[in-house]
């Protein structure tokens, strides 16, 4: 309601607060279920059927099925919970984080080796940094879009 949210003006960032947590409760608890090996097997055998056991929104289920972590975040997912999906797929945390930027795995890894993403232009929404909405997606996915 009147929760003070000073973090809404940070670009490319969703803070997992009480409101997000409420929205994402079942999505995140679904993710948590993947910490058990038998659930990972059941999920991989029929993802849709497994997801349908959870009272998640269709939007959330599509986010999971398409492995669109930004969509999962927007609908209340938290990255530490969503990481269980990546672990089920055998992905590293770097691959997961990179997947949210539009960069290829190599591009993202190269950015990190050369010092990571700069904070310049990425502090406030409306600046011109590479994390700003107008500059999405980044890297190869962006070139593909432009082509």
């Amino acid at each position: 309601m009147s929760l003070d949210k000073p973090y809404l003006d940070v670009p490319g960032t969703i803070i997992f607060d009480a409101e997000q947590s409420r929205k994402g409760y079942h999505l995140n608890q679904f993710c948590m279920s993947l910490m058990k090996a038998e659930n990972r097997v059941r999920f991989k055998a029929n993802e849709r059927a497994y997801l349908d056991e959870w009272p998640m929104t269709e939007e959330q289920k599509q986010g999971v099925l398409t492995r669109d972590l930004n969509r999962c975040m927007a609908t209340g997912g938290n990255i530490y919970f969503l990481a269980k999906i990546g672990a089920t797929d055998g992905l590293s945390f770097q691959q997961m984080a990179g997947s949210m930027t539009g960069m290829t795995e190599d591009e993202y890894r190269a950015m990190m080796i050369s010092g990571g993403r700069s904070v310049e232009g990425n502090r406030y929404i409306g600046e011109d940094g590479d994390a700003q909405a107008k500059n999405q997606p980044q890297g190869a996915a962006n070139k593909k879009k432009e082509a």
């Binding site: 670009p11 972590l69 975040m73 949210m100 930027t101 990571g116 993403r117 904070v119 500059n135």
Partner: peptide, 14 residues
Amino acid sequence: SHQLQGPRAGLINK
């Protein structure tokens, strides 16, 4: 410094 999420993932501020 680190950010694991969204288009701003990979942020580092030495």
